[in-house]
Write a protein that binds this DNA or RNA. Structure first.
Lengths: 136, 136
DNA sequence: TCCTTATTAGTAATAATTACTAATAAATTA
DNA sequence: TAATTTATTAGTAATTATTACTAATAAGGA
């Protein structure tokens, strides 16, 4: 039998951080923000809850090329795909998903059952490009 | 001035492994295969060369949800996008790329300069689904 | 063959994440 | 409300992928 999930203060605080700061965040970043209001919360609790909230589909987990995982709220209206700036780390949502009929047909042809996917584009945002062209 | 790249035995051996086994491999997996013919090669050499070969666009680096990076040969004809089985780890190439005119127009509208991107779908392949339905 | 220096082997250090354990606190029951 | 059960937490230790360091090696040009 599956253990019953409890609504703890810690879990609420973590979700609150995501609602206040709706962006891709590492476990460490979430930790530092949560610490402002809950100074006793441990990093292990952050990791455990990020994992749980991901499984429960409250959060999306995206592993960056630097090897660190980032998390963000799942909104029904916008897919969790991004333009991500390699310089400043800021991200912009891509307002559609590459999984279309063609893609679905391809997977059906392979009898492949999808569970989740990643589509992100890494590059340089306009602000960072301006700044670099000024200094160079 | 940029240092001149040398064609070392080690670098050749690593590329040879990728040509013999054309699939997504972790540094550890490459290490074990290379070790069969070059028992003295160190893991640091593997990492250093995988990084270099990625920068030189001989290899594509894909970070999986487990946090480990995988590498594979870049072929001009097939994009480095995949259906990846979470059970057995096998992967199949998706024979097209989601970066189309619409996507390019969106990035131009944001003055975003793309450098690389990731598009991978994780799920269960047909073989693994069959096996699990047999045992269940 | 000699020389310069990029590269390597071997090892230590780093850092993200996971595991462990006694103490705590949700949530259910009496 | 009080007692009870057990999911969860804080704090810490362990794990593991990756990077850094250094003396020794070897590629490639003179």
């Amino acid at each position: 039998m599956k253990p019953k999930t409890r609504l703890t203060k810690q879990r609420q605080a973590i979700l609150q951080v995501f609602h206040q700061q709706d962006s891709l965040m590492t476990a460490q970043e979430v930790y530092e923000l949560v610490r402002l209001t809950h100074p006793r919360m441990s990093l292990g609790t952050i990791y455990r809850n990020l994992e749980l909230l991901t499984i429960q589909s409250f959060l999306a987990k995206i592993v960056f090329p630097d090897g660190k995982a980032r998390f963000e709220l799942i909104h029904s209206e916008k897919p969790n795909h991004h333009l991500i700036c390699l310089s400043c780390g800021q991200s912009v949502h891509i307002p559609w998903c590459p999984i279309n009929e063609k893609m679905t047909a391809f997977m059906n042809g392979k009898y492949f059952t999808p569970q989740y996917h990643q589509f992100d584009i890494f590059g340089i945002c306009s602000e960072c490009k301006q700044n670099s062209s000024i200094t160079s």
